[in-house]
Design a protein around this nucleic acid. Structure first.
Lengths: 258, 258
DNA sequence: TCTTGTGAAGGGGTTCACAGCC
DNA sequence: GGCTGTGAACCCCTTCACAAGA
């Protein structure tokens, strides 16, 4: 889902699979909870359960980081927390800017896990001059005109976009031009960025639509449960190949603009 | 990332790959935009560009739905919009409840794409009695005590959890007990659900941490750029195997509670 | 004995490249 | 000539199952 990065063959060894990287934060969270409860060691089985994955996957994931466990015993919690944090780059503070101070932007600014260690909100930015100066989560909103200065002055490399869809690409372009190389996009648009810039997106309506798909499936199965495997693929599949456009202009469903 | 569902071999044919399902909303969005501009047909190349994927992937994806294109011409926009909407189950309105009316919950309630066709907010719910009755996005907040009644009365099958992490599992359990079978979780916790229930999660800090990982990588490459392939994998890899726990209790980084 | 670390097998998804059809 | 639909190759990820080691 990320993009950009040339990902050259990684001059040997340094190749942690993307799927593994995506799970490290999950392990880290589980380990942090154990750490707070002063649990000294944990087995792959226990930790996997806490993270919601299976233990073989977890062990394989950790094997990319090195041999950090002890056979017959398990993993040292504190040590793993440190190693994963380091691997994820959380041993330093990343300054981030949030652009777009609507409901969502404000929600993120107030989100605890955000302002906590590893990330620091360098500035909140909005294009609305009326918002400028207002405090959100204790920080003053800065006007969009200042975007470039803020990014450069604070050496910001990570930007979060929470603007309306229409403004997202322009904001993205400006962030990138000013030096940002990683973007987390909450606006429902496909962003175009130059090579070397990573984009990750969080899209509410896509998630909901995926759930709707499975939900519909369930409802369908319930019905065919009794019949099942008795009736053939029914004539329901009238469409396909020949007929085409059974009601292309008539019974069109209302579709989300999202 | 979804879970639950037994996903039986799908009595022949009905098997659309999960990866394809996840992209259908993207295609639908691009197609809707074309539809609004009254574009009649579109090629796989054009549509793929608009959706941010490559054309071979798009054609393969569409092939799972059926043969909806015309060789030498392209795809009929309106027709595809209809077919994808139907496939995703958006030809009906899904009532959803949002539980947890903090900043994030309020943001979602106000989010346009949410309330638009395909999904309908059946209720906003919060455990804080002080919030009860207050209007958010034009809807009154209902107290958590009413959760079960709301779900049953409105036949809600999709629930969105925007509570603090500590409350998420309990809310989830109650939703499921009341009949919800799909959950979109914004709380930073792993939810445990019975078979047959789908969970998707949206996790801000995980996304940021993944970006930080790649960002760190970039910074490292910049340095080794000049040297590159001249120096061997350096002694930097002091750790590994032998030594163990170089500073397990000393220079521990501050780690996010995530 | 217990649990990690990992080759090897298996499964999905992506990409290629071209046959099929307009 | 142009574009779709799709077998086949390829690649990545997951899972299995067991050797290695505390």
């Amino acid at each position: 889902m990320a993009t950009g990065r040339t990902h050259r063959p990684a001059t040997r060894s340094r190749g942690i699979p993307e799927a593994t990287v995506a799970r490290l934060p999950l392990y880290l969270r589980a380990l942090t909870a154990l750490s707070e409860r002063s649990v000294p060691t944990v087995s792959s089985e226990e930790l996997a359960a806490a993270a919601g994955v299976n233990s073989a996957k977890l062990r394989k994931d950790f094997s990319y980081l090195g041999s950090y466990g002890t056979r017959g015993v398990g993993y040292d919690v504190e040590y793993l927390v440190y190693q994963i944090s380091r691997e994820l780059g959380l041993t330093q503070d990343w300054p981030v800017v949030i652009v777009g101070m609507g409901n969502l932007g404000a929600a993120l600014a107030n989100y605890g896990g955000f302002a906590s260690r590893g990330f620091r909100i360098a500035a909140l930015i909005d294009a609305d001059a009326h918002l400028a100066g207002r405090l959100i989560a204790g920080l003053p909103v800065r006007h969009a005109d200042e975007l470039e200065d803020i990014v450069e002055d604070n050496q910001v490399s990570i930007g979060v976009i929470t603007t309306p869809a229409g403004a997202a690409q322009e904001v993205c372009d400006r962030l990138v031009a000013a030096g940002v190389t990683s973007i987390l996009n909450f606006a429902p648009t496909v962003l175009t960025v130059p090579d070397g810039v990573d984009v990750r997106k969080v899209d509410l309506s896509i998630e909901l639509q995926i759930l709707a798909f499975h939900e519909q499936r369930k409802a369908g199965e319930e019905l065919s449960e009794a019949v099942d495997s008795v009736t053939p693929p029914v004539a329901a599949k009238t469409v396909r190949g020949g007929i085409k456009r059974p009601g292309s202009d008539g019974d069109l469903p209302a579709v989300m603009p999202a």
